[in-house]
Design a binder for these strands. Structure first.
Lengths: 229, 229
DNA sequence: CCGTATTTGTCCGTATGTATG
DNA sequence: ACATACATACGGACAAATACG
């Protein structure tokens, strides 16, 4: 297994229908910020760009709409979804609830292997915080949260959680990119692990929930500082 | 306002794109059980049945796939989603988390008007339970839960909650259609209202969560009795 | 292995609606 | 207000790939 995993994005063709392939490409364009909120998804332009006809492309765009990454306006076209601050707050709350469930479920199935891996994440992030390597911290932080949700063992939850993380991504917030926020945030991570390891369902859920709730508050502060609210 | 609300399903045309209209019709067919899990959605047959071309129909089917009500198999077609017991349990857990969030949010904004309406629902259901009018109880029960989620004031939550309720609907469980389960269930409803009115965030969330968790247990029992597990 | 049916994707035509000058 | 240009929405016909009997 020299590679075979990381390809994924380029050569997974073949098996999937064209509309699904297009859907993923569009998704990538949006999440990478190449297509920004409010941008129009021009059928002709995109179909030529991808070398397909308009049919599959329209199907892909519909798919994005259903998942909340885009929205269609009758007779005007499809646009990248614009998330208002109010909607972002709503998304945060739902994400908190989903993440809380992850904590609750995880506390019922956590074992030494998971625990070890989780502590590894936190140690890594501690070092990255100290070294002020914000970008790496951000990435590791995402992986840490992903791993937590994955470990809860509920596929529906994983799918849904990502759906909300993706939509929040439309806001382009690297909220915690300042000063000592990193180590504070990482202290919360350690608390979450303890809560999950305690075996106390409800406590784990609440701890996980509040972690995202605090992210929401930080996000709100950022918006206020930027005068966007 | 003699009517105007109940039409909705028939004459909402005009404004919406054809693919959205078709999506709703297909959704109705599935949720009404006219199309059962595993059934194939034949493009030609359906497009003729609805009097449209394949384009909008395919877009509608993609939309259903994105929302988990159907699934597409390359070069074989689109089929109504089959929910395995395992998946159903997963759906219940996520639904519980979403419903718990509704309780938490509701406890922050509940007022006399909402409280009165909620108590009205419970009284109605008490009467229906006594009269053993199961079908009416079931419908009112759904309305009650919908109203709770609506009242939480988070549109993203409403949308997501319904998505999960719909998918669970694919299992066709009228789980609580037996004996004294109704009045027991309704006692839980009263407890939920009290918890929401207490103003205690966490308690409300937990109470709401456990209500769905108990539904999950009842569902599991039903499956076991039917030997499906 | 072959013939049929179905799906998938493409192309073109037309109508309708929106935006722009 | 009007005309033009452009994009979308929908329909229908066609070819290719694949599944199934």
């Amino acid at each position: 297994m020299t590679d075979g995993e990381s390809i994924g994005t380029e050569l997974d063709d073949a098996q999937l229908s064209l509309s699904v392939q297009l859907q993923r490409k569009l998704e990538k364009l949006i999440l990478d910020g190449e297509l920004k909120p409010g941008d129009k998804l021009n059928e002709l332009e995109l179909s030529q760009r991808f070398g397909t006809s308009r049919g599959p492309l329209r199907e892909a765009m519909q798919n994005l709409c259903a998942r909340g990454l885009a929205e269609a306006v009758r007779n005007r076209g499809v646009f990248v979804r614009t998330i208002t601050p109010t909607e972002a707050f709503e998304l945060y709350d739902v994400r908190a609830a989903l993440f809380g469930l992850a904590g609750r479920l995880l506390s019922d199935r956590i074992d030494d292997a998971i625990l070890k891996k989780l502590h590894g994440f936190v140690e890594d992030m501690d070092k990255l915080a100290e070294a002020q390597r914000y970008s790496d911290y951000y990435r590791t932080n995402l992986e840490f949260h992903d791993y937590l949700v994955q470990s809860a063992g509920n596929k529906m939850l994983v799918r849904e959680y990502h759906s909300f993380v993706d939509r929040l991504h439309l806001c382009r917030i690297r909220g915690l990119v300042k000063s000592g926020a990193l180590s504070i945030s990482n202290r919360e991570h350690a608390e979450m692990i303890d809560a999950a390891a305690s075996g106390n369902n409800q406590r784990a859920q609440e701890t996980f929930f509040r972690h995202v709730a605090r992210s929401k508050l930080r996000f709100r502060s950022t918006l206020e500082e930027e005068g966007r609210i």
